[in-house]
């Protein structure tokens, strides 16, 4: 069994794709090193991330397949699914063969596997755009905590930088210990390590209470349907929602 092991970055993954073409390899799995559990049957190849190789793959996808295919594999990668790496390789091999019509092959497993992941990630991205809650801190930073199922917060930087253009904010992915930062001019990603207490702005609790009051006021008692509520907004996201606590 041949395993490709990469550093977990998107560039690393694209490098792995490049190497598999160059060496005419058919790896069984392409996995990030953090998720890799060794056993003696596995034949390991460690991929050395190379931006040049990654760029070549990127350009080839745009030229020979489509911009949509590029977005698809990006989303599939962000799903962090255990088979994402190998699904992406199979999808791209097929794509390089059939070209931009690839996304019409909806019933083909190589396409279907990717589409399923894309749907999940896209859905979470849209949900998070709505349910992220900023708390205003004493130092005037708007700070949001979230534990997404997939690695989606990097998809949200542009959205929030566009609408909250005049406020400094941080969206903190607690599970992955990193976040989106925005400083009123540009947004970027960075690791987060919190080493001092977070102090709320004096007005913060006031607005949280108003929001809860509104949430209670707008509910129609004779239509209660908590199951529908949690269908739309799964309970795993409630932890950081002000109105649910």
């Amino acid at each position: 069994m041949l395993y490709y092991i990469y550093d977990g970055t998107f560039d690393g993954l694209l490098t792995a794709i490049y190497d598999s073409y160059y060496k005419k390899d058919f790896p069984e799995q392409i996995v990030p090193q953090d998720n890799f559990t060794d056993n003696f049957l596995i034949n390991k190849v460690y991929i050395r991330t190379d931006e040049e190789k990654s760029k070549k793959v990127h350009d080839a996808i745009l030229q020979k397949i489509s911009r949509g295919a590029m977005a698809n594999i990006m989303y599939a990668y962000l799903s962090e699914h255990e088979n994402a790496g190998i699904f992406i390789l199979e999808y791209l091999r097929f794509g390089f063969k059939v070209g931009k019509i690839i996304d019409s092959y909806l019933a083909d497993d190589r396409v279907n596997n990717i589409n399923k992941l894309v749907t999940k990630v896209a859905r979470e991205k849209h949900l998070l755009a709505g349910i992220i809650r900023f708390r205003l801190l004493q130092n005037n930073i708007y700070y949001a905590l979230i534990e997404p199922q997939y690695n989606t917060i990097c998809l949200l930087g542009k959205h929030f930088a566009g609408r909250m253009s005049d406020q400094v904010f941080v969206i903190h992915d607690v599970k992955r210990s990193y976040g989106v930062f925005y400083d009123k001019t540009k947004w970027f990603m960075s690791d987060i390590e919190i080493n001092k207490d977070i102090v709320l702005h004096e007005k913060e609790i006031f607005y949280q209470e108003l929001w809860k009051r509104y949430f209670d006021g707008i509910t129609i008692e004779s239509r209660l349907n908590p199951k529908l509520q949690s269908n739309h907004m799964p309970k795993r996201y409630w932890k950081y929602l002000i109105e649910m606590n």
């Binding site: 909250m164 253009s165 005049d166 129609i220 239509r223 529908l228 739309h232 907004m233």
Partner: peptide, 30 residues
Amino acid sequence: NKKGGIGNAAPSGICHSWTPDGRCISLLKI
């Protein structure tokens, strides 16, 4: 959004929460 302004609209619309009756909160309806 305008320069230095706050907010924009998303053509698809965005839900921000769901009340226990299962209806979405998107706008502050008041």
